[in-house]
Each structure stands twice: as structure tokens, then as C-alpha cells.
């Protein structure tokens, strides 16, 4: 499982403060826990509103873990370290 490629998708709406915070936080986690085996896609719903329905996006920002299955969703600016790790199930593969 640890060899698996992670596919992450971050939904934002414009360059809001929350979105920017979320992005910064996310990059930190990924670099720390998933270095080299993640793919991050950032979707700005202001430009692609049609994509919101497909991933059942309500809250902004929302991070969706597409891979590995099952799909998991984390909302908010990712500032709560603990909850992000639990939410994305990152702890299991935490090397530390």
C-alpha cells in the first residue's frame, strides 16, 4: 500500500485566504508524508463550476483523496494537523 500512488484533488474557489492556506498546508503534509508518490490537482471551481457536482463538493476548500480507494474527503483549510492525518488516513503510512 505504501507503494501506491496517491491522487489528491484540492477544490478551491478563487484565490481566497482559506484556499491559499489550505494549499500551503497540503503541500507541507505531502512533502512530509508522501514525498514522491502523490499527484496533486488543484481545481478552481470559479473556472470549472461543472466539476463541483461530480465530487459532491459543498464546502470550500475540500481535499479529495481519489486514490488509494476509498475516496475520502477533508474540508477546511487543513490547519488542524491531527484531523488531516486522520481524515486522509495518512497516519498508517507515517514513516515516523
Amino acid at each position: 500500500m505504501s507503494e501506491e500512488m496517491w491522487e489528491l484533488r484540492l477544490y478551491v474557489a478563487g484565490q481566497t485566504a482559506k484556499s491559499m492556506t489550505a494549499l500551503t498546508n497540503l503541500k507541507t503534509y505531502c512533502e512530509k508524508h508522501l514525498k514522491g508518490r502523490y499527484r496533486l490537482e488543484i481545481i478552481d471551481l470559479l473556472q470549472h463550476p461543472q466539476l463541483a457536482e461530480g465530487d459532491q463538493i459543498l464546502a470550500i476548500p475540500t481535499l479529495v483523496r481519489k486514490m488509494p480507494a476509498p475516496i475520502r474527503r477533508v474540508i477546511g483549510d487543513l490547519s488542524n494537523h491531527e484531523r488531516v492525518l486522520v481524515g486522509l488516513d495518512l497516519r498508517a503510512i507515517d514513516p515516523s
Binding site: 482559506k18 463550476p49 464546502a59 470550500i60 474527503r73 477533508v74 477546511g76 488542524n80 484531523r83
Partner: peptide, 16 residues
């Protein structure tokens, strides 16, 4: 399926 990890709003609903 939803974990809240910080500040958010429902802009996604508005956009949808």
C-alpha cells in the same frame, strides 16, 4: 466522509 480540518465555507454549494 467529511472531516473538518479548519476553516471553510460553502462556496462549493453556491458554485454548484
Amino acid at each position: 466522509e467529511i472531516d473538518e480540518t479548519g476553516e471553510y465555507d460553502l462556496e462549493g454549494l453556491f458554485i454548484r
